[in-house]
């Protein structure tokens, strides 16, 4: 004598495929959403770490450029309004960058390494770049000034676009899960038409009948989306470990990890809740029409 459901929904054909579809959708959806979070998180980190906004290069073709040229340039830069700091990158550091590209055996003394100066700008002031370039050309016509902000903005746009796409994909995946629930509910309504008719004839309101479906959807949703989310979490951890092993810069810091964990934990509840609501509305709309 238990308080069982009045409709045999657990034996439905739909009950066999809905959990599988929902589990798969939650798996894909949570991974996609966590990827989105990762992109947002990484972008913020990258933008925060990127303090150098301009780079100045003094190329040398005949041996080392004079220290005088470097000091004149640094003097000009430090006097220019809007420039917070200007520092020459040590030659050893530039050489080490070349080692990573050309190998350790390369003798950097044979290469004519340029002088590179990192320039940090003051966020509150605007630097007159054309004027600065003119002054630099007066010192030496070979000096090249690169403004990173233009390509940084392009990269940010690309990242934001990919975040947007990932969010759309997540929403689509969620939509598919809900559409599956609605379709399965409508199929169940047809399958159990006679039982529903009897319930209705003995006074069951559409809301009472809908409750049977929504509780079933809630249970199904919790079960299947927990499985989907669990597998997504394992995949996420697996990918993290794998990328670290092959040496790609994929670092999961504690902030991002806690955000991702929240997604993996909350996704089943949110999915189950939305499935419950979609089942309820599907029943009410059908019965009341």
């Amino acid at each position: 004598m238990n308080n069982q459901q009045d409709l045999p929904l657990k034996k439905d054909i739909a009950a066999r495929f809905v959990p599988k579809v929902v589990a798969l959708m939650v798996y894909l959806g949570t991974l996609c959403f966590v990827f989105t979070l990762f992109m947002i998180h990484s972008t913020k980190l990258w933008e925060g770490q990127l303090s150098t906004q301009l780079t100045l290069e003094i190329p040398t073709t005949h041996g080392h450029p004079s220290a005088d040229l470097q000091s004149r340039v640094l003097h000009l830069l430090n006097r220019t309004p809007g420039i917070q700091s200007a520092t020459a990158v040590p030659q050893k550091e530039i050489a080490s960058l070349l080692h990573s590209l050309l190998g350790e055996k390369v003798d950097e003394t044979l290469l004519s390494l340029p002088i590179i100066i990192d320039i940090s700008l003051n966020n509150n002031e605007i630097v007159d770049i054309p004027s600065l370039e003119t002054h630099l050309k007066n010192i030496s016509s070979d000096i090249q000034l690169t403004d990173h902000r233009s390509w940084q903005a392009h990269v940010s746009d690309v990242i934001h676009m990919s975040v947007l796409i990932a969010l759309v994909v997540t929403a689509l995946v969620l939509f598919v899960a809900l559409a599956t629930t609605t379709f399965a509910t409508r199929t169940s309504l047809l399958i159990h038409r006679q039982v529903i008719e009897v319930l209705s004839l003995i006074g069951a309101t559409p809301s009472y009948i809908a409750k049977q479906f929504q509780m079933n959807a809630l249970k199904q949703g919790l079960f299947s989306s927990t499985i989907g989310s669990l597998f997504a979490f394992l995949t996420f951890m697996g990918v993290g470990v794998l990328l670290e092993k092959i040496g790609l810069p994929f670092s999961i810091d504690s902030t991002f990890f806690s955000q991702a964990l929240c997604v993996f934990v909350l996704a089943p509840f949110l999915t189950a809740l939305l499935m419950m609501l979609s089942a309820r509305f599907a029943v009410l709309i059908t019965l009341r029409s």
Partner: peptide, 24 residues
């Protein structure tokens, strides 16, 4: 149609074909 069940709650019906729910 949604309010008809409230009227039906005041009725008792013995159906000729019983209409018992087989799974209960």
């Amino acid at each position: 149609p949604a309010t008809l069940p409230l009227l039906r709650q005041r009725l008792g019906v013995v159906f000729q074909e019983f209409k018992l729910l087989d799974h209960l």
